[in-house]
Nucleic acid binder design. Sequence first.
DNA 1: TTGGATCACCAAATCGTTTTGGATCAATTT
DNA 2: AAATTGATCCAAAACGATTTGGTGATCCAA
Lengths: 344, 344
Amino acid sequence: MVHNDTTDNEPVADRGRVTISEVANLAGVSPTTVSHVLSGKRLVGEATKGTVQEAIRQLGYRPNAVARSLRTNRSKMVAAVVPDITNPFYAVLTRGLADAVDGVGYGTYVCNTDGNRERELAFTHDVLDRGVDGIVMASVDVSMYASVGPSAVGTPVVCVGGIFDHPRVDLVAVDDEVGAHAATKHLVERGARRIAMIQGPAESGTARADGYRRALAEAGRECDPRLMARGDWTRRGGRQAMQQLMSLEERPDAVFCANDLTAIGALDTTRELGLSIPADVAVVGFDDVDAATIVTPALTTIRNPAYETGMAAGELLLDRMLGRYDDVSRTVILPCPLVQRQSA
Amino acid sequence: MVHNDTTDNEPVADRGRVTISEVANLAGVSPTTVSHVLSGKRLVGEATKGTVQEAIRQLGYRPNAVARSLRTNRSKMVAAVVPDITNPFYAVLTRGLADAVDGVGYGTYVCNTDGNRERELAFTHDVLDRGVDGIVMASVDVSMYASVGPSAVGTPVVCVGGIFDHPRVDLVAVDDEVGAHAATKHLVERGARRIAMIQGPAESGTARADGYRRALAEAGRECDPRLMARGDWTRRGGRQAMQQLMSLEERPDAVFCANDLTAIGALDTTRELGLSIPADVAVVGFDDVDAATIVTPALTTIRNPAYETGMAAGELLLDRMLGRYDDVSRTVILPCPLVQRQSA
DNA sequence: TTGGATCACCAAATCGTTTTGGATCAATTT
DNA sequence: AAATTGATCCAAAACGATTTGGTGATCCAA
């Protein structure tokens, strides 16, 4: 009932944002014309174009992106749905994505799912409601896409890592199996006799374990199930798994860890046991995070190209968002080379 | 496990998203009424409320956030303007911010400025154009706010780190001076005789150097300018600065580094020179990033509470966004305790 | 019967753009 | 002279929600 809240509630601004019609008024033209000098989609006389640009400059006009989004049905924004931005891998990936799309005027919206399926679903709805133009899903469980059907709504999606079979969802991944194979093969060639592996948790994929087994098989080795421990991608998990492996009567003399954090945890254990790396036990990780070069001895690992992954995902998205590509799902496989340091 | 409600929930793929008037049609009411059952801002009869909710469920209706934003002039989105999300400190800070506002329904939009003033300005415009409800500025140069004047547009802003004097911009920071003082004092008490410091680049603030000097003064020491080297916040910079310090005829026996990466670089140098830490030279860092516990010897450092900083910034923002606070600028100072490990 | 509440609902305006289909006028062609 | 063509510009309709000011009922008290 009280109408004078403009003076009450607005402490600073008697003037909010400048709208297109204010510009039009000042320039003595219609909003249509202003829009056209901005977009260049229709011809505008040189003289009036000048007047309008001057008015824009004078008022400091900037188009309201929300209104534009509503009308054009595109937000110039992409979403990165990741487990945790705090994880360097996803931080770097997100940066790669942002850099890929930034130049074309797209902003980046990030969601941390914590690998929680409910959060993942909630965020997927959230970003679709917000009308993002593209989504990069780097989260654990992408199967629920069948129920959300974002591509049915028409929003391009690219999945990283996971294998996700949908006719219009692009994929970018590293060949985990090949990388794991290279890592294990390196240990074999180094002369290791008993090569263990610390896997991820049971829910995660088996590609890295597959590569490990293949390398072993190619070397004519048995795959001793006691040498397959499980971590949870964390440093602590790696430490515990390594303790378990080292309490076997026949200790392994090499261990391939499914990611770097796990490997760093494994190094913790060897240090606690007074073992020497790589003499007593050789360790190779997977990911090549920054920490791999910080730990001593520096970690031999498989480079997981986070930045390039984000970039590639961004490119795939752009192709679809800009209409450069509109066909069945594509897959980009990035190489993951061995980078040899001190630990193996 | 997957029950038959899929038939009800199935997304209607006919044409784009479901709008409020489609719901209204199906329920036999007006869009107004649908809006009211959604918002609860006006009474709706129990019977029709039921019908409407059923229609919503049946069509899988979700309100278009863009349209809502346009009308209500609030986007339920906050922006994190940081130098680089790849830097763990800012990643953690961003996560803290996201966690603070997520529960209340706010999403997070992130911008990487690279400490580049132009990018910072461009992103500030970008997020204002997008109508974010709040901005956290964690970027180097916040002085240009005078020229943009976001608070003049009415969008709440909180600055982290930098000292920024604007009547309505909230601040959250760590007391760098006190932290640096504690670090240096620790070195004094440990018995170090010649305590050096590796500062940040010249453009950065002097608070940490001030704390260093104060601790020295309190111990009755001279502040030898030759012991003040400069890094650039990076590992490499720390390594080089440390080389410089170690080539002095009178080597320092302790060094306080303005951040952890610098300290890790300094450790690189000591390792290359075959010096023992902390016996030959004690090192303390600043930030307590993950890497501080990964490096050997583990780094004694000052804990810079990134997550809490982001959280606090989020809270300050929420206060203003939700109208819980609307007054002059507030400042939150977070403690930055010494965490003692092996390097000093 | 009248008047005032209280319910339950709706029509229409609004947010700030973009986009489409003209309208106007001068220049050019037929 | 009439018709066509361009060059400029504008009015009005979207986009999909929220919000405001009604409008009928219904009910109760005077």
